[in-house]
């Protein structure tokens, strides 16, 4: 397989999502700063969302919203369904984004509390918690 053929097979949305997931995992595993870990989790979530979204896109189809763009008249529901992408991953990602935001806010609050209690913001200062 030539390099050109390999590049043409890459799904750009899923590939960039995969890169973000890897960056996030590296950040969580290798960075000691609690705030950076929280942001790395957020980056990882963005990547996962992109990968999930990419599985719902179907080439040549449009957003799953029934309007004059997909159904000449807004009554031809069966024909319109053949011109729309998969709505399920989009609905899942909508949920995931909100949960991700809640998790990030909670993580950052814990980091702020730990630092306010004098524990420092590096995960190395919590050696006692190590198993």
């Amino acid at each position: 397989m030539s390099i050109l053929e390999f590049v043409s097979r890459i799904n750009p949305v899923a590939a960039s999502g995969a890169v973000l997931v890897l960056v996030g995992v590296w950040g969580v595993l290798a960075r000691p700063n609690l705030f950076k870990i929280a942001i790395a989790t957020s980056v990882m979530e963005t990547g996962v969302n992109l990968v999930i979204l990419s599985t719902g896109y179907i080439r040549g189809r449009t957003a799953p919203i029934l309007d004059s763009a997909v159904a000449g008249t807004a009554t031809d529901a069966a024909g319109a369904a053949a011109r729309m992408t998969d709505p399920v991953p989009q609905a899942l990602v909508l949920t995931a984004i909100v949960i991700g935001l809640a998790v990030t806010a909670l993580q950052l609050s814990y980091a702020v509390r730990l630092r306010a209690a004098g524990g420092g913001s590096s995960i190395e200062s919590y050696g006692d918690e190590k198993w």
Binding site: I10, N11, T55, M84, D86
Partner: peptide, 15 residues
Amino acid sequence: LLPLALGAGVPEAPG
């Protein structure tokens, strides 16, 4: 993640 990045999860039509 490599198979996904190469479009393994993308269907031809919705399920």
